[in-house]
C-alpha cells in the first residue's frame, strides 16, 4: 500500500472541490448542440431467400448513398507543439517550424481551395514554396500575412505585439480589421505589429553630421595679440622692444588652439618671437603686416 499512500500524500496538499460533472456535461451538450440518442433495442429479422432481390436493391442504394455521402477528406489539420518545437512539411513543400507552446492549422488537401490559409497561435517560421496561383496567407490574431513564396518568422512580441521578420522574397502584412493598415516587407525587413499600426524595427535614425561652423573672421593684429595674451594667461606677451602694427588686419580663426594661431600668424604676417623654454613663455618681437 506504499504506493497508494504516496499517491494520497501527493493529492492531499492541493485545494480540491468536487464539481457536478453531470451538470457540466449537460451544459456542454447544450452549447455544442449535441443530441445523444439512447441506445435502442433492435429487432433482428432473419433473412429468407425470397427477400434476396430486395436485399440486392438495398445494397445498390446503400452503395450509391455511400458514394454520395462519403465524408470528404479533411482539408485542414491542427498541430500543437506542446512539449518541443515541431517541423511541419506541407503538401506543397512549404515548411512550418512551429515553436514550443504554439499551434497551427493548415491545409492538408488543396481540392477546391484557391489559397493556402494558415491560422497560427504562438510563434513560427515559414519557408513558403513558391506558387503564384495559390497565395499563402497566415492569420495570427489580427495580423494577416500574404505571400507568394518567401521565408518569414512570426513571433509574439512584447506587450502582445507581433513581430514579423521577412528572410526572403516579399510579404504583405495587413491589419484584418483595417486593410488600409498594410505594409510590404522586403528581404531583411522586420516590423512590429502594434495596436497603433506597424513599427519598422530596421529603421535607424540617420546620423546628422555636426554642422561645420566657420569661425574665421577679420581681426586687427592688436586684437590677435591681446587674445593670445588673455588665453595664455600672460604666457604670450610683447617683448620690451616689440614692433606691432596694431591696426593691420588678418583673417583668422581664434577659436583654434594657441599653437595653430601662432602657426597661422607665421604664415599670414611678418611674425617673430622668442621662446623662453625655462619659463614656457613667448615674447613677441615683431607682429607686422606681411
Amino acid at each position: 500500500m506504499n504506493k497508494l499512500n504516496k499517491i494520497l500524500a501527493q493529492s492531499k496538499d492541493i485545494h480540491y472541490r468536487s464539481v457536478d460533472t453531470d451538470k457540466a456535461w449537460d451544459k456542454f451538450r447544450a452549447k455544442a448542440n449535441i443530441v445523444q440518442e439512447p441506445i435502442k433495442n433492435t429487432k433482428v429479422i432473419p433473412l429468407v431467400p425470397k427477400q434476396w432481390l430486395s436485399i440486392a436493391a438495398g445494397l445498390v442504394l446503400l452503395l450509391t448513398a455511400t458514394f454520395i455521402f462519403w465524408p470528404e477528406a479533411p482539408k485542414f489539420e491542427t498541430t500543437m507543439a506542446s512539449v518541443e518545437s515541431s517541423v511541419i512539411k506541407m503538401i506543397d513543400g512549404s515548411v512550418i517550424n512551429l515553436d514550443k507552446n504554439s499551434e497551427v492549422t493548415y491545409p492538408v488537401n488543396y481540392d477546391g481551395l484557391d489559397e493556402r490559409y494558415i491560422v497560427l497561435t504562438g510563434n513560427a517560421t515559414f519557408d513558403v514554396a513558391h506558387n503564384p496561383n495559390m497565395p499563402f496567407r497566415v492569420l495570427k490574431d489580427d495580423l494577416l500575412i500574404e505571400v507568394l513564396g518567401t521565408e518569414f518568422t512570426l513571433t509574439g512580441g512584447d506587450n502582445g505585439n507581433i513581430e514579423v521578420e521577412n528572410h526572403e522574397g516579399s510579404v504583405r502584412a495587413s491589419d484584418v480589421n483595417d486593410p488600409t493598415i498594410t505594409i510590404v516587407l522586403l528581404k531583411g525587413d522586420k516590423v512590429n505589429f502594434t495596436p497603433e499600426g506597424f513599427v519598422d524595427l530596421n529603421y535607424v535614425a540617420p546620423v546628422i553630421p555636426e554642422p561645420i561652423i566657420d569661425h574665421t573672421a577679420t581681426y586687427s593684429l592688436y586684437e590677435i595679440y591681446f587674445h593670445l595674451y588673455e588665453r595664455s594667461n600672460g604666457a604670450i606677451d610683447l617683448h620690451p622692444n616689440a614692433k606691432i602694427d596694431g591696426r593691420s588686419t588678418v583673417r583668422m580663426d581664434l577659436t583654434q588652439n594657441l599653437q595653430v594661431i601662432i602657426d597661422s600668424l607665421d604664415e599670414k604676417t611678418n611674425f617673430e618671437y622668442n621662446y623662453a623654454q625655462q619659463v614656457d613663455m613667448i615674447l613677441i618681437k615683431k607682429l607686422l603686416e606681411k
Partner: peptide, 18 residues
C-alpha cells in the same frame, strides 16, 4: 468548458501528437 468546446469543434481535423 471552452477548452472542451474547442476540442469538440476541431475533432475532425485535430491531430494530437502527444
Amino acid at each position: 468548458q471552452d477548452t472542451f468546446m474547442k476540442l469538440w469543434d476541431s475533432r475532425d481535423t485535430l491531430v494530437i501528437r502527444t
